[in-house]
């Protein structure tokens, strides 16, 4: 079939600002976006620039925005795009400076990944000497705990789709945080406390707004946002409870435990205390809500079934823990 493809082209290093250019090419019915780009490069304009290699969604080279959605060109069918959007419009990934056309600078992304210290850290004495006689014992269930996050191919689609990355340049982003959780979940890693402490601050796991865009964009079903939620849980469990984010969770839970429901009127006071200076920034919002008749009152009776709610909470309480057991074959 003969199709039209619009490609956003630019080369800041040579002073060429972004503009869309249209091409018409003949492609087979089941062509992917990558096939189409290659047809353009081969037959129409050899200067159209993009990265690609494996064609099978494992190398992560060809992530770009396809009709606005970040994803891999090699596993996106043209036909489906045309059916859904009536056009095929290709742009470089967002939130990263463009080098040329669809190729963006990758350093900003990798600097964020390096910031989570993405490697299994073990004490020096646990480093095996050669020849290595034993592997670490680990149940399949522990490997499976890392299954989602270890599937990541670092294609940067999630970072491009991330709504926080758009407004906050400090945010480490979904891929880096998912990678962090991969090590927090790893029973072999001994750096968990330090990792959680580092990421507890600005740019870390509390800065995610849980918009789910990363989960939608991910071509490998890594579910970065879920990993971020796991990180928060591990952080609270490890005693990092001083942040607004963790206070929100713990106070939310304690109010539900007391009253059997969320009491939005109490949340700001609970989280910030009865300190008028800290509550000051909330007042304009409270005023606007009051005028619209939406300000919830902070005083309620507990709901009738509150004891049942508490029972459910007690039962549900425990989340997954590291299931690592030091086996007999282990290194010291």
């Amino acid at each position: 079939m003969r199709i039209e493809i619009e490609i956003e082209r630019s080369c800041p290093g040579e002073g060429q600002a972004a503009r869309f250019q249209s091409f018409h090419v003949e492609v087979p019915r089941h062509a992917t976006v990558l096939d189409t780009l290659m047809a353009v490069k081969n037959q129409e304009d050899g200067s159209v620039t993009f990265r690609r290699s494996c064609r099978s969604a494992i190398c992560g080279s060809c992530a770009m925005r396809i009709n606005g959605r970040s994803g891999l060109a090699c596993d996106t069918q043209v036909e489906g795009e045309l059916r859904r959007h009536g056009k095929l419009r290709i742009q470089p990934l967002a939130h990263m400076p463009v080098v040329r056309d669809l190729a963006v600078e990758i350093d900003p992304f990798w600097a964020r990944v390096r910031a989570v210290q993405p490697w299994v850290e073990r004490p020096r004495e646990a480093e095996p000497s050669w020849p290595v006689e034993q592997e670490t014992r680990m149940p399949q269930s522990a490997a499976e705990e890392m299954d989602d996050t270890s599937k990541c191919i670092m294609c940067m689609s999630c970072f491009s789709a991330c709504e926080v990355a758009e407004v906050d340049t400090r945010f480490l982003g979904p891929a880096a945080l998912a990678k962090a959780y991969r090590f927090v979940a790893d029973p072999r890693d001994t750096n968990t406390q330090n990792r959680l402490a580092t990421l507890n601050g600005g740019g870390g796991y509390w800065d995610c707004t849980r918009c789910n865009q990363c989960v939608e964009a991910c071509p490998k079903d890594v579910k970065p946002m879920e990993a971020i939620v796991h990180l928060r849980r591990e952080a609270i469990r490890a005693g990092f409870t001083g942040t607004i984010g963790s206070r929100h969770i713990t106070d939310f839970l304690s109010i539900v435990r007391q009253e059997g429901r969320l009491n939005e009127g109490r949340m700001p006071m609970q989280m910030k205390g009865f300190n008028p200076f800290k509550l000051l920034p909330v007042l304009p919002l409270a005023w606007r809500m009051w005028r619209k008749g939406k300000l919830p009152l902070p005083w309620h009776w507990p709901i009738p079934g509150v004891s049942q709610v508490r029972r459910i909470m007690d039962r549900k309480g425990g989340a997954r823990r590291k299931s690592f057991v030091v086996g007999k074959g282990d290194l010291k």
Binding site: V120, E127, P128, E133, Q134, R137, Q140, S150, D186, G327
Partner: peptide, 26 residues
């Protein structure tokens, strides 16, 4: 001859190998 050591080295370096029922590399 050296293969087992190299595999175990990679395991210690963080490769998440699939495991068998004995919790060893499957």
């Amino acid at each position: 001859r050296e293969a087992p050591s190299d595999i175990r080295q990679m395991e210690h370096w963080g490769v998440i190998f699939s495991r068998n029922d004995e919790e060893r590399i499957a």
